[in-house]
């Protein structure tokens, strides 16, 4: 559960201040998959970073309904951010090693995660030997390592090609269903947002603000057929319209 109350962010002070995010309210329930979509400069990444604790909100409050106080969230960055000197297994277990999890418990957990993200056989590969998609799989496994209730993803698949991206989206849905995490995913692709989310938050720029939150009524699980269904196409059209409208 994530409760966002009147959260805003202003960079700079006085005359030179820039509003990155106008006051925003949103409630996100346990196990929901929220897609945040919007143009550059709409504050979507800023919002995610505030939820992650990487930035502080200028005003407002965020409540995370989780008992993990040390690491309440897992975070998947846009460009994987794997430690280049560590292997796939070493990167995945990094959060465990730095929170004092016994080696044996960690080994078992890594094995599980490698299987979950489909990286069997690459445990000892170094990041430079991996494709973009495999790097992101590793990053997802790392974000899930110490089992946070909330997974935050900042345009996680924007650096991989379209084919890989569609495959990764399906994988992500499978992982979401298998783990029951609450996911917040930032994207600039309306199609991706509609396909993945149980809710879609549409944001707009100058100043960054939330325009509308859509409930997505598409049937679960989502498949290739979802993408050709009338409901999906209607939703994509409406989201696009809202984004265009918001730009004016």
């Amino acid at each position: 559960m994530i409760r966002i109350e009147q959260v805003s962010k202003t960079f700079g002070q006085g005359k030179n201040s820039v509003v990155a995010l106008a006051p925003l309210d949103q409630f996100i329930g346990e196990g929901e998959f929220i897609a945040i979509v919007g143009p550059s400069g709409c504050g979507k990444s800023t919002l995610l970073r505030i939820v992650a604790g990487l930035e502080t909100a200028t005003e407002g409050r965020i409540t995370l309904g989780t008992s993990q106080l040390k690491r309440p969230v897992g975070f998947v960055f846009q460009d994987a951010v794997l430690l280049p000197w560590k292997t796939v297994a070493g990167n995945i277990r990094f959060p465990l090693d730095t929170s004092g999890v016994p080696r044996k418990v960690g080994d078992r957990k890594v094995e599980e995660l490698v299987e979950l993200v489909g990286l069997q056989g690459f445990e000892n590969a170094l990041p430079k030997q991996l494709s973009g998609g495999m790097k992101q799989r590793t990053a997802i496994a790392r974000a899930l390592a110490d089992d946070p209730a909330i997974l935050l993803m900042d345009e996680p698949f924007s650096a991989v090609d379209l084919m890989t991206r569609e495959g990764l989206n399906d994988e992500l849905l499978r992982i979401w269903q298998a783990t029951g995490k609450t996911i917040l995913l930032v994207t600039h692709s309306v199609e991706e947002a509609a396909y993945l989310g149980t809710k879609v938050m549409v944001m707009s720029a100058r100043p960054g603000r939330l325009r509308k939150t859509y409930d997505v009524a598409l049937p679960s699980p989502r498949t290739e057929e979802t993408k050709t269904s009338a409901d999906y196409l209607d939703l994509v059209g409406e989201l696009k319209h809202m984004m265009r409208d918001a730009d004016r």
Partner: peptide, 29 residues
């Protein structure tokens, strides 16, 4: 140090010592 590594250290709530030993030192090696 790559700024994204600083973000990673922030998300993982690494202590200053962990940050040095696990991120900064191997980066500088």
């Amino acid at each position: 140090i790559d700024k994204s590594f600083t973000d990673l250290a922030g998300v993982l709530r690494l202590t200053p010592w962990q940050r040095f030993w696990h991120v900064e030192l191997p980066s500088a090696l």
